[in-house]
Lab assay of single mutants.
Amino acid sequence: MVVWDEDGFQGRRHEFTAECPSVLELGFETVRSLKVLSGAWVGFEHAGFQGQQYILERGEYPSWDAWGGNTAYPAERLTSFRP
C-alpha cells in the first residue's frame, strides 16, 4: 500500500508492506490519499489501531470520501494500518 499526506496523491509518500501502528512515527501527521496495490488492508482513524476502521480493497483512494464517504461517522484521515 502506498500513502500520501495530501489529497490527490500529493505531498509526502510512503510505501507499506507490513502493519503500521502510527504514521506519526514516520513523520506524517495524517494520511489523506492512498493506493492499495494488492490484497486488502484495514485503515484506522487513530494510532494504535483505534477509532473508526475501514476495509481498503485493491484500488485508488484519492481523498477521505473515497474510503469513508458512506458512513455515519466518516474519518477524514487515517493514522494506522494493518494488512
Results as ranks from 00 to 15, higher is better:
G59W: 03
T30Q: 11
E6L: 06
S38M: 04
C20A: 04
V3I: 10
S63I: 03
Y54H: 06
L34V: 10
V3K: 00
V2I: 15
E19G: 12
L34E: 00
S38L: 03
S38A: 07
N70Y: 09
G39C: 06
E60L: 05
Q10W: 01
G39M: 04
Q53H: 10
G68S: 11
T71Q: 13
H46Q: 13
H46N: 05
D7Q: 12
V36L: 02
A18I: 05
V2A: 04
F28G: 02
R13P: 06
G69A: 13
W64I: 14
H46C: 15
A47F: 06
H46E: 15
Y73K: 08
H46S: 09
L24K: 14
N70S: 12
T79M: 14
E76P: 09
G27C: 05
H14S: 12
P21Y: 15
W64Q: 11
F9K: 00
R13F: 09
S22M: 05
A18K: 09
E19R: 05
E57A: 09
Q53G: 14
T17Y: 10
Q52I: 05
L26M: 08
T79A: 08
T17Q: 15
L24W: 06
A75S: 14
E76R: 14
G11H: 00
V36G: 00
W64A: 13
Q52V: 11
C20D: 02
S33H: 08
G39S: 05
W67H: 07
G69V: 07
F16P: 04
E19Q: 10
H14T: 09
C20M: 15
Q53L: 05
H14E: 04
T79E: 08
P74T: 12
R77L: 14
D7G: 06
L78V: 06
D5L: 05
A40H: 08
A66L: 09
G11C: 02
K35S: 03
R58I: 14
E60W: 06
H14M: 14
D65E: 15
F9L: 00
Y73W: 11
G68R: 11
T79L: 12
R12P: 00
G8P: 03
R12S: 13
A72I: 12
R32S: 04
F44H: 04
T79D: 03
F16V: 13
R58Y: 08
F16I: 15
R58A: 13
W64M: 09
L34R: 01
A18R: 08
Y73L: 12
Q52S: 14
E76W: 13
Y61S: 02
R58E: 15
T79Y: 04
R77N: 07
W4I: 04
G39K: 04
V42A: 05
G68E: 12
C20N: 00
F9V: 02
T71G: 13
T17H: 10
P62T: 09
L26D: 08
A40N: 06
L34C: 15
F28I: 14
G69E: 11
R77I: 11
Q53R: 12
S22K: 02
A47T: 12
G48H: 12
S63Q: 09
Y54V: 14
G51C: 07
V23W: 01
H46W: 08
G39E: 05
E19C: 08
I55P: 07
W67R: 06
F44Y: 10
Y61H: 02
G48Y: 11
Q52K: 13
W64S: 15
G39F: 02
R12N: 15
W64L: 15
R13Q: 12
S38G: 11
A72E: 12
R82S: 07
L26C: 15
L37N: 06
Q50K: 13
P21M: 08
Y61K: 03
T79R: 15
L37S: 07
E15N: 04
T71A: 12
T17K: 10
F28D: 03
V2F: 05
D5M: 06
T71E: 13
Q53W: 10
